Amino acid sequence: MKRNVIFALIVIMVSFLHPFSSSAQENAILVIESYNSEYPWDASYKEGLEAILGSHYKLIFFEMDTKRIPKSEYEKKAEEAFALYNKINPALVILGDDNALKYVGPKLAGKQTPVVYLGINNNPRVYDMFGPENITGVLERPLMKRSILYIKEMIKSDLEKILILFDSGTTSQSSVEQVFKGKDSTEIAGITADLKLVGDIDTWKQSVINAKKDGYNAIIVGLYQTIVDSNGNHVDGEEIIAWTSENTPVPPFGFWDFTVGAEKTTGGLVLFGKVQGETAGQIAMEILTEGKKPYEIHPVVGKKGRLLFSKTQLEKWKDTIVLPEQMTKDSEFVD
């Protein structure tokens, strides 16, 4: 009997020192991805998160996969993500990109768990995510105006008209809003920039093939991962960018690092997902190791882009474009 009492006291003492409800996952960080692990942007920012957090915390990933599933299933995925959050009780949650913030963010607002978002193209206020004291993060802003100015320096003839192609997904619509403000055309430094938000592969291909005939000197490829075929089936993004690269009659440029390559675009002033991950990871560390509260850390815009080019593409388009000497010095190259 005495032995049983002593054992019970030991159990109680251990329970106080290690409360099972919270300590089991005190070193876990839940990363809710809007998209999927095969998506190059996700792979890139996850590399950044691992670099900053991986040696200190266990990163658990949940894929909402919203580039490939119908919009009608987004809320269901958000419920699954929230159920996983409740199950593992992580020390912190990271929300990757707009759909994770839009659909999961409200479920986490006001919780004790700190939340850090990354890759957000829209204003967090649109998702009612600017007020909650447990949420902060990193904004993503495609560098459209500066990109076009760099392209202007590269085009051998006068750059008068440029086509900007995006799919019609949530991230795409958010990405272009600040520059186009609901319109499909704008003027940047005397250059006409036309925007097309495309939902299906046939329209995408026609837009590319007709670019030169329609008076464009260049194409900037934005996002293309939500494109579907005539039956509504998702079309693989790598196939789309490869087809675009092969069939465009004018030089193609990009806004993101994953669009640049021998069978992709020539490049340009691009954003890197890894930088977004590193920045979000640093904010998470401030919260978890320095005791800062999310509301004490103002949302930041990720570090500005870098010049990245494909040597293969530059050679392919050498009769049309040339990289000025100073840009060459400032640039990184692939292939």
Rank of each mutant, 00 (worst) to 15 (best):
V198T: 04
R3M: 11
W256N: 10
D229N: 15
S21R: 08
P252V: 05
L271G: 08
V179I: 15
P249M: 05
V104M: 01
M1I: 11
A280V: 07
I32Q: 09
E38D: 13
M64H: 03
K156E: 15
P124K: 06
L59E: 09
S157D: 13
G291K: 11
T266L: 08
E140G: 02
G131C: 05
I69Q: 03
I283H: 10
K196C: 00
A211N: 01
K87P: 07
G215T: 03
G215W: 04
G105I: 02
G305V: 02
Y224E: 00
Y127A: 10
A24I: 15
G199R: 00
R146T: 10
D128P: 02
G222N: 00
A193H: 03
S37T: 07
E33T: 04
E332Y: 15
I191E: 06
K303F: 10
T192Y: 00
P114V: 06
A24D: 04
F7L: 15
F253W: 07
G137E: 05
K316G: 07
D202V: 13
Y39S: 04
L84T: 08
K264R: 14
I155V: 14
W243T: 02
S207L: 10
S157H: 14
G302Q: 11
I220Y: 00
E26P: 00
L30S: 12
P299I: 14
Y57T: 13
Q178S: 12
S310V: 11
A280S: 13
A24Y: 09
N247D: 04
P294V: 08
P142W: 08
S15Y: 12
P249K: 01
E177Q: 14
L323W: 14
S310L: 08
G48L: 12
L9C: 11
K316W: 12
P19M: 09
D257P: 05
L143F: 10
M154R: 00
I32H: 10
T186D: 07
V93W: 12
E315H: 14
L30E: 05
T266H: 00
I151S: 02
L288V: 12
G267S: 07
D128W: 04
